[in-house]
Amino acid sequence: MSERDEWPLWEVFIRSKQGLNHKHVGSLHAADAEMAIENARDVYTRRSEGVSIWVVPSHLIYASDPGDKESLFEPAQDKAYRHPTFYDIPKEIGHM
């Protein structure tokens, strides 16, 4: 399967009609921002009106350290998930 068909991961934040702030509800794969918003509407709001949707490419999210200072193996201030795969290793390097 070529990589040319992989859609990036987006994080979805929804503020409900009565809500005060956007809440993280999950993620989805989309090829572009418009699609991400449309899909977020379809999946996470089931088309309810008056709802605000934010979508952010997952790799653009910076997350704080978890509270536990003993976690020596995590890089600081880095991406939202634990993931060797969220680092783009060039194909030439091979499996890592």
Partner: peptide, 11 residues
């Protein structure tokens, strides 16, 4: 072709 679009079409 992908789960998200399956949902979109059925919507």
């Amino acid at each position: 072709p992908i789960l998200e679009q399956d949902i979109a079409l059925t919507n």
